[in-house]
């Protein structure tokens, strides 16, 4: 299969990345060469193979549902590009 420009723009929309119109052609070329490479996997019959979902022979540990820290609002807000005293600030969402 091959990816056309429209498909790439759609995927970019899903990924929330704006794509410069001037770069769409080279991106299409690069992605198609990568997918051609990836599609070698179709040579293999994997009908009877279980997918590998974890390489560890253990299931994920769960922790107790307890509060272990907190009261660190300042630290959390510290790196935000736009904030007020209590919140992250984003462009207006609701009129």
């Amino acid at each position: 299969m091959s990816l056309d420009k429209e498909k790439i723009k759609h995927v970019a929309k899903l990924a929330r990345i704006s794509v410069d119109e001037a770069k769409v052609d080279s991106l299409t070329k690069d992605l198609n060469s990568i997918f051609k490479f990836i599609e070698q996997l179709n040579e293999l019959n994997t009908d009877k193979v279980e997918p590998l979902t974890s390489i560890l022979n253990q299931s994920l540990r769960s922790r107790k549902d307890e509060i272990s820290d907190g009261k660190i609002r300042e630290k959390i807000l510290k790196n935000s590009p736009k904030k007020n005293e209590e919140f992250f600030v984003v462009p207006k969402v609701v009129e």
Binding site: I76, P81, P91, V93
Partner: peptide, 18 residues
């Protein structure tokens, strides 16, 4: 939103993300 670079361009939240 929470950390890192933010673009100054875009008319709404989605465009800001993009």
């Amino acid at each position: 939103v929470r950390y890192g670079y933010r673009s100054q361009k875009g008319k709404d939240l989605i465009e800001m993300y993009e």
